[in-house]
């Protein structure tokens, strides 16, 4: 068990590599109830805080988006799903209290549902474990009954695999988890969740993105609506337009290392000329690739795929190169 965002979380059950591979080849179950669920009825009001096309989010659909500050810095990254009567948000555990304070402080009504459970069922066999949700495509959302339990199910996740995130009343979480395990899912912890999301090239809030990073530099441009940037009708729009016009000074890139030694968050990134280019923000040994991989910010002129770099670990340079993300291809069912 490890402490994470104020919660005691299981780092691993049978072992990170076994759980990681179970997710890549079968069906893994993660308890992510620490994440914050919230509901917002005022769609136009929500739009003021996020750079995505909220108005264009149809009922039954979900989208990845961001909460930004005035400087274009990322306050949180989150999922928003249109459930018809309201938009459901899924917020990072470590940010949920601050997010709600930010939204309420700026006049938006937020109905928090932090008491709800959230289970992530991920992997190519997730659809066999949860046939009730077979009708959903990637990023769909629906209210479904699973084993007599009322659930809100999205076909999405944080592993790069096909799969579902299943919300239910907190008191039903354990029973639902037991049912899904009985149907063949394997428990997986925070360790595998981190190695899976890193292989999938997905940023972790607090490591790869935070208030000092903007979505353009972080490679999250896909979450910015072009139309809304033009209209500059959300918090941080002006600052982001300026970054886009000028080009970011640094970029978040994937780095594949030679050898077997991983570089961890904080490791310095240097060019082959010895110049400091930035720092690693996440690093792990990839069980799928059997090689170390990392995410880090580098000076924009060193962000080109194939750029040779050194990562400084224990005072020694480990050679690597800038690699396209994701490291391991996504397997979404669109």
């Amino acid at each position: 068990m490890v402490e994470f965002a104020g919660y005691d979380m299981p780092l691993q059950y049978q072992g990170i590599i076994a759980e990681h591979m179970a997710c890549r080849t079968g069906a893994a179950l993660f308890d992510v109830s620490h994440m914050g669920q919230a509901e917002i009825a005022d769609v136009a009001g929500l739009a003021r805080f996020v750079p995505g096309d909220v108005a264009g989010l149809k009922p039954g659909r979900q989208r990845y988006t961001l909460l930004l500050n005035e400087a274009g810095g990322i306050l949180d990254d989150l999922m928003m799903a249109n459930l018809g009567a309201h938009i459901q948000l899924v917020l990072n555990a470590g940010r949920k209290a601050a997010d709600v304070a930010h939204l309420r402080g700026n006049g938006l009504d937020v109905h928090t549902r932090f008491d709800r459970a959230l289970l992530a069922l991920q992997g190519p066999k997730a659809k066999d474990v949860l046939p009730e949700a077979a009708g959903l495509k990637f990023m769909d959302v629906a209210a479904l009954v699973v084993e007599g339990i009322d659930c809100i199910v999205t076909r999405s996740g944080y592993t790069g695999e096909d799969g579902f995130e299943i919300g239910c009343a907190g008191e039903n979480g354990e029973a639902l988890a037991e049912k899904l395990l009985a149907r063949g899912a394997v428990l997986a912890g925070l360790g595998a969740r981190d190695s899976l999301r890193l292989e999938a090239g997905l940023p972790l809030y607090g490591n790869d993105i935070d208030e000092t990073t903007d979505p353009v530099s972080a490679g999250l441009g896909f979450a910015l609506s072009k139309k809304r940037l033009e209209h500059a009708d959300f918090l941080g729009a002006a600052a982001l337009a300026a970054v886009q016009a000028k080009g970011p000074a640094r970029r978040l890139v994937g780095i594949r290392l030679e050898g077997r030694a991983p570089a961890r968050a904080g490791a310095e990134i240097r060019g082959k000329d010895g110049q400091s280019l930035g720092h690693v923000t996440s690093g792990v040994f990839s069980p799928t690739l059997n090689a170390p991989i990392a995410l880090g910010y580098v000076r924009a002129d060193a962000a080109e795929t194939g750029t040779a770099l050194d990562l400084i670990v224990r005072d020694k340079p480990l050679p690597g190169q800038v690699t396209d993300l994701p490291f391991v291809p996504h397997n979404y069912v669109r």
């Binding site: 990170i16 981190d194 077997r260 030694a261 991983p262 040994f285 170390p292």
Partner: peptide, 30 residues
């Protein structure tokens, strides 16, 4: 947990009691 990398000291190196002289890396940490 799962150990994925080991770094060992150079033969001939003299080490003091309590000195860090090898590294093990698991998937997640060194």
């Amino acid at each position: 947990g799962d150990i994925v990398f080991v770094e060992l000291p150079e033969p001939g190196r003299s080490v003091g009691k309590g000195e860090a002289c090898a590294v093990v890396e698991s998937v997640k940490a060194a």
